[in-house]
Amino acid sequence: MNAQPDAGGSAVTRRDFSGALLGAASAAYAASLALPVCRYLAAGSEAGGPEVRQVVLPKAAVQVAPGSVLYFTLGHEPGLLIHHSDDTWSAFGAYCSHLRCTVLYQPESDRFFCPCHEGVFDPRSGQNLAGPPAHPLERLDVAVNGEDLLISRIG
């Protein structure tokens, strides 16, 4: 069917209109399919459960010589407990704040080091000292409760 241009001169034909309508309907159809697929794929991310705030390590099981570290699990993430040479303790999240490689303790230089991109952290404060990390390691609180060590997230 031929279209009749309106007085303003803009010619939206019935064919154009149907085409646009079909396009919009197709987009809506695709979106209605994409939504359940996205929710399906995201389901794993929601299955993480509530954040774990504290971990209890029996002192008897914590055999950490001065100048060495123990890795433990805090929820899904690794944490590390360091026994300093002056007999004090500190604990941190073990993920490098840059791109989440797990840091290691180098007793000869008394520092945490990330082998991936060579980030360096202070072993007492967790402060980022060199390399790409822009933030310190996550600091954890260490408390003694009878025969247990309580390690908890701060804040």
């Binding site: 991109h117 060199a130 390399g131 790409p132």
Partner: peptide
């Protein structure tokens, strides 16, 4: 790419390198 990130971290410590 890996070495570039390392070097940037050395020359521009912190968030700038990222």
């Amino acid at each position: 790419a890996f070495q570039m990130l390392r070097l940037l971290g050395r020359w521009l410590p912190g968030a700038g390198s990222e």
